[in-house]
Design a protein around this nucleic acid. Structure first.
Lengths: 145, 145
DNA sequence: TCTTTACTAAGAACAATTATCCTTGAACTG
DNA sequence: CAGTTCAAGGATAATTGTTCTTAGTAAAGA
């Protein structure tokens, strides 16, 4: 497991390489992602960043999220109602387990899905580039209520 | 495989049973779903229904979609950008294969996923109620271009 | 028939996201 | 270390997909 600091440095290098500027806002947003295990929403990131940079605008957060998504350093977890969430720790396709009550999102351990992907690829003729797998349920804490 | 007519009758019976009225608009919307293999969007359904009922409002389509979702007769396929699509032919969780270029959605053949679900359920303590699995790629037709 | 209730249409309202427009500042140049 | 330049930020308007509100209509029950 790469350290968070190492990862941050790598991303900064990648941004520089692609001629994107390293601004304090971008750094602040990036750090929120690299230190969150709870798959934050844009709103959540915005609030967190505002704590340190009170003048940051929501548009900047959206732009940065878009940028980070673009260079493949965060993963978007899409929802039907538009309340998207993001994963900055494992920015590659992997399953998520979502509590329908408290909206908590965790990463379940699960044997890998590569064989499924190639099964589908073979049968369909599609060239598969990515996938998304979500389980919806009730977490242990919410079950007790 | 149940016939489309049989399925329509069943849904009508279910609506009646739950004291929902059978209106011409609802029938028209329902028929669009039962005759579409292409996983239509709300907009698509709206256009189709307008052909027969030119005064129907978009809100009615949304409401009916919501209702049908509620009683479990259509499946919502959620997208991060809000362009949701629906499946009225197989209203239970099953994988989808989506072309990132032309947005076509098909149902790939795939061995079942129940073991995955129970694997996750065991490991996490969550009570899993549903899941969603999508593969993103390029369809054979779009690959040629 | 009268009454009640559910439903529809239309447009307003909403929330998440994106675009616009002007200003600022990161990073390259000399 | 300035000076310059263009990408990025801030504020806010616009857009998009969806839901709510209101008033009118039609169906079912008394």
């Amino acid at each position: 497991m790469k350290s968070s600091q190492q990862r941050l440095d790598d991303i900064i290098a990648k941004l520089r390489l692609n001629k994107f500027r390293i601004t304090p806002q971008r750094l602040a947003i990036l750090k929120v992602f690299l230190n969150s295990t709870e798959h934050p929403s844009v709103e959540r990131v915005y609030k967190q960043v505002r704590a340190d940079f009170p003048t940051t605008s929501l548009a900047t957060v959206y732009k940065t999220v878009h940028l980070l998504k673009e260079i493949g350093e965060i993963l978007e977890i899409g929802f039907a109602d538009g309340r998207n969430r993001y994963d900055g720790l494992k920015p590659y396709p992997h399953p998520h387990l979502i509590c329908m009550k408290c909206k908590a999102i965790i990463d379940p351990k699960l044997s890998n899905l590569d064989h499924l992907t190639s099964e589908v690829e073979q049968a369909s003729g599609y060239q598969i580039l990515s996938h998304q797998l979500e389980f919806f349920g009730i977490c242990p804490a919410c079950q007790k209520k």
